[in-house]
Amino acid sequence: MKSRRAEQLWFWLFTGPALAGFVLFSLWPMLRSLWLSFCQYDVVSAPHFTGLRNYAYLIFSDPAFWPSIKVTLVFAAVQLPLSLAAALGVALLLNQPVRGRGFWRSVYFLPSILPQAASVAVFVYIFQSDGGLLNRVLALAGFTGPAWLGSPAWALPVVIMISLWGFGYPMVIFLGGLQNIPRELYEAAHIDGAGAWARFRHVTLPLLSPVLFFNVVMGVIGALKVFDVAYAFGAAQGLTPGGPARATLFYGLNLYQQAFTYFHMGLASAMAWLLFAVIMLITWLNFRLSRRWVHYGD
């Protein structure tokens, strides 16, 4: 009995700081933001309860809400498959027994540890319409390049291209998954006459599906919350954040502006909880659908 109490004490002693941190800096702010989402709150005055007004304004009146959702969904729908395909493709290559494999793994992972703002600044130089590297190359070939950054039609594709640069983390996870696939299965498939594509389709993909599922779930969440690249994109050009014409107004950026530019903390809290609800829904759907294609080998 005594030792059990002592064990409890040590448990609280060691987990206490982490739990206190979680309660103070995560749980309490989350609950507070839920309350604030039903209030008008400008940081200085006391929150004033307004019921569902913030949610109603967002859904029915805010000129930026739906465009920001559209931008974010398009980004997620295009960027996520492309980044996962790139990460998987490179992971497959880096899993081959070639010389200098460790070096190439480092090279491909390197962009992921670069600050996003620095990457964006470089890409903004490449994509400048007047005097940018890409348009200079196009001019040499006799073409007039578009206004990549200033055009609402091109700005989002450029942001997607920039964000593809950092696929290092899913690549490493894929690589780990690939190394756990038993070589005998490939040898058996090879003996049975399976070609490279068949081996990939019927051996690699099924056995990699839990890893792929993990990357999809994390990728969806990351894509819906994207902020840094959008913020840095606007800042690097001196553009109105989210511009031109709301073409890069991601949901996270819109939320940030409402909270920290315009002091609409209640509205921003409502946006955060709507995002939370959407992410929960999509993640739940992902888990439901995963039963059909994820194989855990049991």
Binding site: P63, A64, P152, A153, T240, P241, G243, P244, A245, Q257
Partner: peptide, 16 residues
């Protein structure tokens, strides 16, 4: 907020 969030996107589209 009105100028940057509401008006400017329409001006941007006019410019383009």
């Amino acid at each position: 907020e009105i100028m940057l969030q509401v008006v400017q996107p329409e001006i941007d589209r006019m410019v383009m």
